[in-house]
């Protein structure tokens, strides 16, 4: 069994943090202790093997795709982050706690179909109609947003979620040419804007219990909404296509608190 101080010297040597004196001390020690020397050589070999794993060229189209996405973001009317934002992403542990429940796919899909045929309105109608919680506004009015969640989802696009004093916005890149649905259930929110800078029509269906947004084309979409006053439920967001699904539970109470906190700054 090796002395902890020897182990420390060996690992520090591998990490290049030993002082000259410590390196010398280790060298002397290794000359005397065969098992320590053997261990040192193994750890050194491990380090070299990991370094030698080799690199591969990233896909040719990667840079182009990144710049395309970046230009889309920069053309967006939303200013996503302010410089001294206190917002933070959910930690890995918090995200880990949020499980995907496969059965909800069937539920969401079924609900989506019912809603789609039951009560379909166009986006223009949405943007022009009045609602109990206030007038529908376009997302350009959202000026300060805090990043709260960013998570790639199984459709190989991204979902980014922001909240701020002007409301909350969910951005989704829709990479597949398929029916794409965003479902808010329960309907504990007031939809303020749905916008897509490059893509064409989507349908919005509402019922007493949920909001469903469907689109037939790929591309970015932003959905702005406010939690309804007094609502403390979990907001259950499901984004699904024919082949896959992303789900996120967001406690509405947290959203309201965060908004108030931002307001007070």
């Amino acid at each position: 069994m090796m002395e902890p101080s020897t182990l420390k010297l060996i690992h520090d040597e591998i990490d290049n943090v030993n002082s000259l004196a410590d390196s010398k001390k280790l060298r002397i020690l290794l000359e005397k202790d065969e098992s320590a020397k053997q261990y040192f050589l193994e750890i050194m070999a491990l380090s070299e093997e990991l370094q030698g794993l080799g690199s591969i060229e990233p896909p040719d189209s990667l840079k182009k795709d990144i710049m395309f996405s970046v230009e889309n973001v920069s053309n967006s009317p939303i200013i996503p982050v302010k410089p001294n934002s206190q917002g933070r992403e959910l930690t890995g542990a918090e995200l880990l706690r949020q499980k995907i429940y496969p059965f909800a796919l069937g539920l969401a899909a079924g609900l989506a179909c019912i809603m789609l045929f039951k009560n379909t309105i166009s986006n223009d109608q949405l943007l022009n109609q009045d609602s109990a919680a206030g007038s529908i506004v376009r997302s350009e009015d959202t000026t300060v947003l805090e990043p709260l969640i960013s998570e790639p989802y199984a459709l190989s696009g991204n979902v980014r979620y922001f909240c701020g004093p002007e409301g909350n916005t969910l951005f989704a890149d829709i990479p597949e040419q398929s029916v794409f649905q965003v479902v808010f259930k329960p309907k504990s929110i007031h939809l303020t804007a749905v916008a897509s800078p490059t893509r064409t029509p989507f349908d919005i269906s509402t019922s007493d219990t949920s909001i469903l947004i469907s689109t037939l084309e790929s591309g970015p979409i932003s959905i702005s909404f406010d939690p309804l006053p007094g609502v403390t439920d979990i907001l259950h967001i499901t984004i699904s296509s024919a082949s896959d699904m992303w789900q996120k539970d967001i406690p509405i109470g947290i959203l309201n608190n965060r908004n108030r906190k931002t307001d007070n700054k």
């Binding site: 990233p58 990667l62 970046v70 973001v73 790639p152 991204n158």
Partner: peptide
């Protein structure tokens, strides 16, 4: 996808 998402997020949060 991770690389692309990382760059896009970095761009969005460049001010921070």
């Amino acid at each position: 996808d991770i690389t692309q998402a990382a760059f896009v997020r970095a761009y969005e949060r460049l001010a921070t």
